[in-house]
Computed example of a mutant assay.
Amino acid sequence: MSAIEIAGIHKSFGQTKVLRDISLSIRSGEFVAVLGPSGCGKTTLLRTLAGFEKLDGGEIHVDGRLLSGKEVHLSPEERNIGVVFQNYALWPHMSIEQNVSYSLKVKGMSRPDRTRRTREVLELVGLDTLSTRRPADLSGGQRQRVALARCLAMQAGVVLLDEPLANLDVHLRATLEEEFSRFHRRSGATMFYITHDQSEALALADRVAVMDKGRIAQFATPSTLYLEPTNEMVAGFIGEGKLMDVSNLTPGNDGRAHAHLFGQPIRLRCAEDARARSEARISFHPSDLSLADAGVGIPATVKRITYRGDHLRAEVAPDPAPDISLTLNVMPPFCIEQGQHVSIALNDGWVLPDPHFA
């Protein structure tokens, strides 16, 4: 197991700054996901850690060993880091067994030891009966397991995964998510997982780094990102988050606050050091809204309904601000239709930190 320390790194391509002063401290054996919109720099971050890109500034240490820094750049093969690419990067002319054992041969391991180690890891990922096949004869999920077996064989202290499920269908993704969790438990490796899929990141990782425009917007546990975002970017990006303005914010001493939304009193969660102010920004999710009894809550008009199987997704426009669209989930029995006048209640929400005092 290996700890990773990324300290103030920068990377540009020409005049384009791709990574801007990124610092991350990752514990040994931790599963960290990096999440963000396309073009935010997450794959470049992985490539600097793997050694495929040189830094313009800052340092990267793994287990206290300097891998990248001023006048220092260890090659990928010197880093003892395993990489699972989106396209798996398997040798098409080699058998599965040969693909797994090749890196061991490069490291100078004897043939008997290579054979033993390769058989062990193929059995662990359930491919021992397919060892003589070539990659073209395997399914996408099986090829992904070959890539994982290769990392297990190397006994890499750090494993980097670059959007490894992007090319798979939704049902196979669920199966492979569990495969990654088992791989993490078996290997004890420090996992660094790049993805654009929030459900993957939140389900798999111990902590998630959300990137935006080459910077780390927030680095926290999945529940903290969802419930307590530190800025508007994270609040709007995670879990269909919605941002709204409230007035007359009055924090208490218990991590709760009172405010008004569209003139209606609401109760919110807030940081312990939150300050009273006349206006504030809050975030919430569709699950935080519900239908209320007539005359209670915020009056609204139903604009659109989408059937989602076990619930309806309703888009409503608050009567005090008809240009705003809010989304809520309606559970059965269904008693709502398009054009209907309803009342909605906000049952939970988070007061974003005041940027002037951040």
Rank of each mutant, 00 (worst) to 15 (best):
H356W: 05
S199C: 01
D354T: 08
D21F: 08
T195Y: 07
P265I: 07
G255A: 02
Q142L: 07
V158R: 02
P229R: 10
S343F: 14
G64R: 13
N347G: 15
R173E: 01
T48S: 08
R65A: 10
H260P: 00
S95G: 12
G36S: 05
A201G: 08
N329F: 15
D137M: 15
E337P: 00
H61E: 04
E77K: 13
A174E: 11
P112E: 13
V18P: 01
Q142H: 08
G82E: 09
T190N: 05
L227G: 01
I305M: 14
A280Y: 06
I6Y: 06
D310S: 15
R111K: 15
E53H: 12
A209E: 03
E71N: 15
I266L: 11
D21R: 08
L168K: 09
A257W: 06
G126T: 07
T16Q: 14
P229W: 11
A274L: 01
L104S: 11
A89N: 06
V210H: 05
T230R: 15
G57A: 15
K107T: 03
G108Y: 13
L67Y: 15
L127H: 04
M233V: 12
H61D: 00
Q144S: 06
W91S: 03
I336W: 10
L204N: 04
F334R: 10
M233P: 00
M154N: 11
H258Y: 09
I344T: 06
D273G: 02
T115A: 12
F334E: 09
P299G: 10
D162P: 06
L138V: 06
N231L: 08
A358D: 12
V62W: 03
G108A: 13
C151S: 14
T327I: 15
P251K: 04
A317K: 09
D293R: 14
E178P: 00
V158C: 02
D288F: 10
Q218T: 03
L289W: 09
I344V: 14
S101C: 07
G51P: 06
L261Q: 01
D206N: 12
I194A: 06
A276H: 02
R269N: 13
T175V: 13
I298L: 14
A358K: 12
I96R: 07
L55Y: 07
D273V: 03
F180E: 00
R134L: 03
V302T: 09
S187I: 05
G141N: 05
S278M: 10
D319A: 14
A257C: 05
R143H: 04
E77M: 08
R281C: 07
L138E: 04
M94I: 03
H260G: 00
G36F: 05
E315A: 09
I324T: 13
S75M: 14
V170C: 02
N231T: 04
A201P: 08
L124Y: 01
T230Y: 04
D245G: 01
R117F: 06
V121Q: 12
T327Q: 13
D128S: 14
A294W: 06
A166T: 06
L243H: 07
E53S: 06
G8E: 13
L249K: 04
S181M: 11
L249T: 02
F183G: 02
D273Q: 14
Q144I: 07
G57R: 13
A300N: 09
F192P: 01
I96T: 09
E71Q: 14
K70N: 12
V62K: 02
S101E: 15
T221S: 15
K213M: 09
G141L: 09
I282A: 07
S187Y: 08
N329G: 01
S343M: 12
